[in-house]
């Protein structure tokens, strides 16, 4: 049976993880390779590394880092942040990344998705969508949730699928950071409207929230950052909890 996936997300700035504290069993929690390897050992199914560096030098550091991650990690990982062309993706995949995620640049120029799919195949193109619910409408935002767009979540998700994306990573801005649970209703709707896998993001605060989002197939995978980095939930105990609640996990 296909397993539901748990995906820790690491923010990277100038080659270092931004969040993450108090890991007693690794030497350097700021080292993305060490932290990634720890998560892999604990049972993470995939990892996401988001480069939030803005500078050109930072980008080069990131490609080197991706190579280092691929050398040491034996589970799949996605990289994202600042990708806006085929030329941006080539060095990342060549360095050993399995998938790349695009967000703002795909909203600005949707043809980018087609170009990436043609060049690298659907399986490695993840489209990340940030959206906020207001007055009954889910509006897509870009630039880390700062800029509203004229796109509506479900219509944009269907377009993204039609253009060949392999997966959708949906972050509810209403839920992100609240620790009150994922946007289960919107995720369920999204999962029914598209035929490609959906990753839930934003709102995880307890193990029960993961159970809730996987029940009724609201999502195929769930992503979280701070609750893992701050050790509020251990990946091993989360997997055990889900197993005990009859959710298929590895």
């Amino acid at each position: 049976m296909l397993k539901k996936r748990i995906i820790p997300c690491l923010d990277i700035k100038n080659g270092r993880t931004v969040k993450g504290i108090n890991f007693v069993n690794i030497r350097d929690a700021g080292d993305p390779v060490e932290l990634g390897a720890l998560y892999a050992r604990e049972g993470a199914d995939e990892l996401v590394f988001l480069d939030i560096t803005a500078t050109h030098e930072g980008r080069k550091t990131f490609v080197e880092l991706v190579r280092d991650i691929a050398r040491h990690l034996n589970i799949p990982f996605t990289v994202g942040g600042g990708i806006s062309s085929v030329e941006d993706v080539t060095p990342l995949l060549q360095a050993g990344a399995d998938k790349v995620s695009v967000n703002s640049s795909a909203v600005r120029r949707p043809e980018l998705i087609d170009e990436l799919v043609d060049a690298f195949g659907s399986q490695c193109i993840v489209v990340a969508i940030d959206a906020r619910l207001k007055d009954g409408v889910w509006t897509v935002f870009t630039h880390g949730g700062r800029e509203p767009t004229d796109k509506e979540l479900f219509a944009w998700a269907r377009e993204v699928e039609k253009r060949g994306a392999g997966e959708i990573l949906f972050t509810s801005m209403n839920h992100d950071g609240t620790k009150n649970g994922f946007a289960v209703d919107a995720l369920k709707e999204l999962s029914e409207q598209v035929q490609i896998p959906v990753i839930a993001s934003g709102g995880a605060g307890s193990m029960d929230h993961f159970k809730e989002v996987f029940e009724n197939d609201s999502a195929d995978a769930a992503l979280a950052a701070s609750i893992f980095h701050f050790k509020e939930i251990g990946i091993g105990e989360l997997k055990d909890y889900l197993k005990n609640n009859n959710i298929a996990v590895r």
Binding site: L2, K3, K4, R5, D45, Q123, Q195, P197, D220, R250
Partner: peptide
């Protein structure tokens, strides 16, 4: 798909 299974088949399986 027979029952809205997602394609690609993506993830860990037995």
């Amino acid at each position: 798909p027979r029952n809205h299974e997602k394609v690609p088949h993506m993830g860990w399986n037995d």
